[in-house]
């Protein structure tokens, strides 16, 4: 499960070719909002050409333009035969998901960014090709004509709602990006809040946000050390259940420790 999803503008070669240097678990090569309307074709070709020639050690998603944009089908076919991890679908709704699922074989990460989509979240996320959900708070608050604030009170309920939906369907919930580039303290507070409400990862619009997001959404050093001790004791005793630090440790807890260590290895912390 990826902790960080970094947006990379799809028409900017210098950023595309460094996409795997920023240490995010996943990148989203963007053909939508970061690309000028007159360069959608150029971005599409650039992303295709790059992915056909290079591949870094990071999950790669492509944010295509929305289903009504006129670029949708060309975006999908530009990268469908390449080794990507999935599409990010903006302005997601159940019909758009169906349309994309018909047009491609890759996993789909919808962006929930309008009120109806929030209400339809369960229907959107339950689709078998959908592998999680991303909250798009900028567009959502713009649609509702409410202020987007740094403490996020206006999206608090939506975060909780999407967390519930995603957890019920056992799929990742990826929080909205922090948009104040130089305010890392604000990012830390925002990311902690999202995590505490049940987000499993967070999108980012700047590479300098990635390290903090990875730290906050990954297992902590102490959690890793505890898991290591549980696994060590488990292999030592060979019993199904045992005591450690005065607590009863049984198979589900050992399994959880195993998954945490696997995640830590994946995140390069072990």
């Amino acid at each position: 499960m990826s902790r960080s999803y970094l947006f990379i503008p799809g028409n900017t070669p210098s950023m595309i070719q460094s996409h795997d240097v920023y240490d995010s678990d996943a990148v989203i090569l963007d053909l939508e909002d970061s690309v000028a309307v007159y360069d959608k074709d150029a971005a599409r070709e650039l992303v295709r050409s790059f992915l056909a020639a290079h591949r870094g050690n990071v999950e790669v998603f492509v944010r295509i333009n929305d289903v009504d944009s006129g670029h949708f089908h060309r975006d999908v076919s530009a990268v469908d035969d390449l080794a990507i991890n999935g599409y990010v679908l903006p302005k997601a709704n159940p019909q758009a998901i169906d349309a994309l699922a018909k047009a491609c074989n890759h996993p789909i990460l919808p962006i929930i960014e309008d009120p109806q989509a929030v209400l339809d979240a369960y229907a959107i996320v339950r689709h078998p090709q959908v592998k999680g959900a991303i909250l798009g708070a900028e567009d959502l608050t713009k649609e509702m004509m409410i202020e987007r604030t740094s403490d996020g009170i206006e999206i608090h309920h939506v975060r909780s709602h999407l967390a519930l939906v995603c957890h019920a369907l056992q799929k990742p919930f990826i929080d909205t990006p922090w948009t104040v580039v130089d305010d890392l303290d604000g990012l830390a507070k925002d990311a902690s809040l999202a995590r505490s409400l049940g987000a499993t990862g967070k999108a980012a619009i700047h590479p300098n946000h990635v390290a903090l997001i990875n730290d906050l959404f990954g297992p902590s050093e102490s959690a890793i050390r505890d898991a290591e001790r549980i696994l060590a004791k488990a292999s030592e005793t060979g019993k199904g259940a045992f005591r450690l630090d005065g607590k009863m440790i049984d198979e589900p807890i050992v399994e959880k420790a195993r998954r945490l260590i696997a995640a830590a290895a994946r995140y390069n912390k072990r």
Binding site: P13, D41, A42, E45, L46, R48, S49, F50, A53, H54
Partner: peptide, 10 residues
Amino acid sequence: DYTVRARLIT
């Protein structure tokens, strides 16, 4: 190279 190629194709 990938950029030169993509820009020409575009």
